[in-house]
Simulated assay, not measured.
Amino acid sequence: MKLRSEAWLERIEQYLKTLPKTEMDALAEQLDNGEALTVVTASSLALEAAETWRLRLHQLLGEGVAFSFDVDPDLVAGAELHFPNAILRFSWQSALAKVRSEIEA
């Protein structure tokens, strides 16, 4: 499980690093008033893995960001970042939904 969570975290980091500054600032701004960023995964993260996520996301979003962790088994695999006004999806569920919508279009 540790390797899988690490792979998803790396994917999220790469995505956030490539966001235009204005978009990254808009995401970080949502967390300025003590609102928590919720990291949702398909299965529970071990305490060590959750701390790794927290540390590495702090590097991108700022030290003052509060985190909570939740589980959604419907993700199948992957993770989502739930900001107060946005959700970034990095999961098999979201990939399958995208493919389904492209097929139906």
Rank of each mutant, 00 (worst) to 15 (best):
K2E: 09
L3M: 14
L3P: 11
R4F: 12
S5G: 07
S5I: 05
E6R: 13
E6L: 14
E6C: 13
E6A: 12
A7F: 14
A7D: 09
W8S: 14
W8E: 07
L9D: 03
L9P: 10
E10M: 11
I12D: 03
Y15D: 09
Y15C: 08
T18M: 10
T18V: 03
T18A: 14
L19K: 10
K21E: 05
T22M: 08
T22S: 11
T22Y: 09
E23C: 02
E23D: 02
E23N: 01
M24I: 09
D25Y: 03
A26S: 11
L27K: 09
L27A: 08
L27F: 09
A28S: 11
A28N: 05
A28K: 15
E29N: 02
E29A: 11
Q30S: 07
Q30K: 01
Q30E: 04
L31W: 03
L31Q: 06
L31R: 01
L31V: 05
D32H: 15
N33I: 02
N33E: 01
G34F: 00
G34K: 01
E35H: 12
E35R: 07
T38F: 03
T38Q: 05
V39F: 10
V39G: 10
V39L: 11
V39Q: 09
V40E: 02
V40I: 04
V40H: 07
A42Q: 01
L45M: 11
A46Y: 11
L47C: 15
E48L: 02
E48Y: 03
A49S: 14
A50L: 04
A50S: 05
E51W: 02
T52V: 15
T52L: 14
T52Q: 12
W53F: 14
W53I: 03
W53Q: 09
R54C: 02
R56G: 04
L57T: 05
L57I: 00
L57D: 00
L57C: 00
Q59M: 15
L61G: 01
G62V: 00
G62M: 04
E63Y: 00
G64S: 12
G64T: 05
G64H: 12
G64A: 09
V65H: 06
V65A: 02
V65P: 06
A66W: 15
A66F: 12
F67T: 05
S68P: 05
S68K: 15
S68A: 10
F69P: 03
D70V: 08
V71W: 06
D72H: 10
P73G: 02
D74M: 15
L75T: 07
V76F: 10
V76S: 08
A77D: 13
A77M: 10
A77C: 08
G78P: 01
L81R: 04
H82K: 10
H82Y: 10
H82G: 13
P84W: 00
P84A: 01
N85Y: 06
N85S: 06
A86T: 04
A86P: 06
I87H: 03
I87Q: 07
L88V: 02
F90P: 03
F90Y: 04
S91N: 00
S91L: 03
S91W: 08
S91F: 08
Q93F: 15
Q93W: 15
A95T: 14
A95M: 15
L96V: 14
L96Q: 14
L96Y: 14
L96S: 14
L96E: 13
L96N: 13
A97C: 05
K98I: 13
K98P: 11
V99H: 13
V99Y: 13
V99T: 11
R100I: 05
R100D: 08
S101E: 06
S101T: 06
S101C: 01
E104W: 02
A105I: 12
